[in-house]
Design a protein around this nucleic acid. Structure first.
Lengths: 225, 225
DNA sequence: TGCCAGGAACGAACGTCGTTCGTCACGAAC
DNA sequence: GTTCGTGACGAACGACGTTCGTTCCTGGCA
């Protein structure tokens, strides 16, 4: 290809939007959504932007930086609650459900949130809001600080569990039930006996229960003190 | 290189132990321990075994299979508890602490445990033991099944947090404290005000509290029913 | 004892990845 | 009109996981 041809090809696409961090993150999120985390490669993102991988490094600090920027964008999109002492428990559930939803909508990124949790504005916002809700609920600062940590963990894990680009979650539960109940009753008497309880509930229910368990645990801790 | 030379070189190392799945996993665990998860490459493991990467595929189902085999080995090494209704809470702590310890000893593998939790004998053993302890504690099957899940999550997460091949954990806590307290008090009044509570406690203490919170939460749930 | 089959070992290669470097084009500033 | 800085990018490097075809060794059978 001659220089003239290259020039003409540039001229042919004047509508191509200029690169920017936002554009790069947008393209990456789209690929993540459709093809999963391992499909988010520098080359693939660059191709989606009609350029080469080298061009991305101006706006993004390598692949790791790109993943962090994606997480930042996702967390920043989560709406906050306006703390109300009368409804704090419901508000906590609502906030955490939205966090999980945001992660699940971009299946696969939750892995990154756990392995390298970002310490950025977007996450501070969420921690701040969690603290506000818990304090509005009457907890003392220390007993509000512990669960803030735990909840981040619960959210990310729930997102991973819900991920697994599987169409039929009910089918997955059935498979798991068969695995459990099909084990040797001699070696695993409890698992086989209670397989139904182990796989009971869909992802939403399990998530809600996990959140409630943590809340109740903190409350018990507070009452005891 | 002639065939004769190759033959001689083989003859030169008759002491080289034959390959086996155990040998491969051993070598991989050693690399994991010393240089972290991303250093566990097929090529590197093969080099440690004085062979080429192609030779590993007889004993291990690719890199993913190798990681799973490593996890299996690690979990299998965790000693179980003999359920005693009088000491069930302490037993639960002991078991979970050992699980965490096993993961931490091989920093980095916890990531795998979360992203692709293995459903193998070694993990069934642990779940079975957790169930036994919880049932000995007087919980009904359903309320024993929920936390079994949650505890796996807490253990893995704690292992990741404790990982981060960092020599000085106290230094890390100080850095984190400075990050929190150095934020804008206008935007993050609660984080800045309670920075001390947010970073309080070392990894062990935080882990124990998380476990207790979950136990108390489940007990509260049981009492309410 | 000689021979053969089958599986382990492995050299070489393929395609893809993240990342870097040097060059080029272009718009702003003087 | 010239210069200069910066974004864009072609090309390449090294490393990765994995596969294929061949070679070699060994244990069992004739």
């Amino acid at each position: 290809m001659t220089a003239a041809a290259a020039h003409r090809s540039t001229r042919d696409r004047p509508a191509k939007p200029p690169l920017s961090e936002d554009a790069v993150v947008d393209a990456a999120l789209e690929i993540l959504k459709s093809d999963g985390l391992e499909a988010v490669t520098m080359r693939r993102v660059a191709t989606a932007l009609d350029t080469g991988p080298a061009s991305l490094y101006v706006y993004v600090a390598g692949r790791e930086g790109l993943l962090q920027a994606m997480l930042e964008r996702i967390f920043a999109s989560v709406a906050l609650e306006d703390p109300d002492p009368a409804r704090w428990r419901a508000q906590l559930h609502a906030l955490l459900l939205r966090m999980r939803g945001a992660l699940v909508a971009h299946a696969g990124i939750a892995e990154t949130a756990i392995a390298a949790p970002p310490r950025t504005d977007a996450t501070f916002r969420l921690v701040e809001n969690m603290l506000a809700i818990l304090l509005a609920g009457g907890l003392d600062p220390q007993n509000a600080a512990w669960p803030a940590d735990i909840f981040s963990m619960v959210v990310s894990h729930a997102a991973i569990e819900t991920d697994v680009r599987v169409t039929d979650h009910q089918e997955r539960a059935r498979k798991l039930y068969e695995t459990f109940s099909g084990l040797s009753p001699d070696r695993f008497p409890l698992i086989t006996a209670h397989a139904a309880e182990l796989v009971d509930g869909d992802a939403d229910k399990r998530f809600r229960i996990a959140v409630d368990v943590v809340i109740d645990g903190v409350l018990a801790r507070t009452a005891r003190a």
